[in-house]
Nucleic acid binder design. Structure first.
Ligand SMILES: [Mn+2]
Ligand SMILES: [Mn+2]
Ligand SMILES: [Mn+2]
Ligand SMILES: [Mn+2]
Lengths: 154, 154
DNA sequence: TGCATTTTGTAGCTGTGGCTATATAATTCG
DNA sequence: CGAATTATATAGCCACAGCTACAAAATGCA
């Protein structure tokens, strides 16, 4: 059998490392569960800033999903206190929604910048950032900022 | 209203950019849908290499999920031709499963390396890599390889 | 060998996030 | 103003991924 229930010192250490890894998987699952919300708030904020309104149909088209899919996710945004809807006037963000959008936007931009600085082709940088951004912790974000800043000065 | 159906040249360009972004979101969704399979094959390969066997219960414990959850995902692995089970003898990978595991492992290691090279604290690097790895394209992988190689030489 | 333990499987629930088809409501324009 | 268009909502389907509770089967040791 595989370690996990014995009591030797080595097995103890193994169990600790194992729990640490399980915790990393849990964290990644938690991040995955908010990824959609981040993409929506980020996009809605952008539409509001650019056009003054964010309609469900536009959101759906830009995300490349059918409008009932967007509609259902927007229902989740409302339920979680991130957005409100004014019927036939579009979607608006709450304070919490704007905060999430702002963090998402900053993260997204920085991830693209770092990828570009690492020599990733622009198309790939844009594409990969769309997924990567949701898994970047505060510490990693800080390191990215330092790297980009230093890159520019050097 | 927001652009999307008019016919002016600017609207045309806008529609193209919009479709490109929708495509990026689609790609990220596709990557998300294989993330779980990559984690499982990677872990199973590691357990097989280390202990000679990969039992459902061990997989579940290491991922931090309940065993029925692991059981169901392993059923998906089998259905998709990535793994086979020998009852009460554990899970084994097919050729396709080993290929996926190998790519996942290489990607995972390289993402951690790059994060460390960028000055991300080890704990965060390990944690964030668990999510980031699934969204790194071939082109980005190549850029990461060049960066790490150059980093070591310089 | 037989029984306790371990391992696996299954049933049934939830939430998320996709889809199509259909219905309804609001807006806009002739 | 009324009709066509556009926008939104809803119903009902699917797959994935999580959970608990319970059942059954295999293993392995006393
Ligand atoms: Mn984004
Ligand atoms: Mn994204
Ligand atoms: Mn991994
Ligand atoms: Mn992972």
């Amino acid at each position: 059998m595989v370690p996990g229930h014995s009591r030797t010192p080595e097995a103890q250490a193994g169990a600790t490392a194992e729990a640490a890894r399980a915790h990393r998987f849990s964290q990644a699952r938690a991040a995955r569960s908010t990824a959609t919300l981040e993409d929506y708030t980020e996009l809605i904020a952008e539409l509001l800033a650019t056009y003054g309104e964010a309609r469900t149909a536009d959101i759906a088209r830009r995300l490349g999903v059918a409008h009932p899919t967007a509609s259902k996710t927007i229902a989740r945004l409302k339920r979680e206190g991130l957005a409100v809807a004014r019927p036939y006037r579009g979607i608006f963000l709450t304070e919490a929604g704007r905060a999430m959008a702002e963090r998402a936007r900053a993260r997204h931009r920085l991830v693209v910048e770092v990828l570009l600085a690492l020599g990733v082709p622009p198309e790939s940088a844009e594409a990969d950032a769309e997924g990567i951004e949701h898994y970047v912790s505060e510490e990693t974000l800080k390191a990215f900022e330092r790297f980009v800043r230093q890159q520019k000065s050097g």
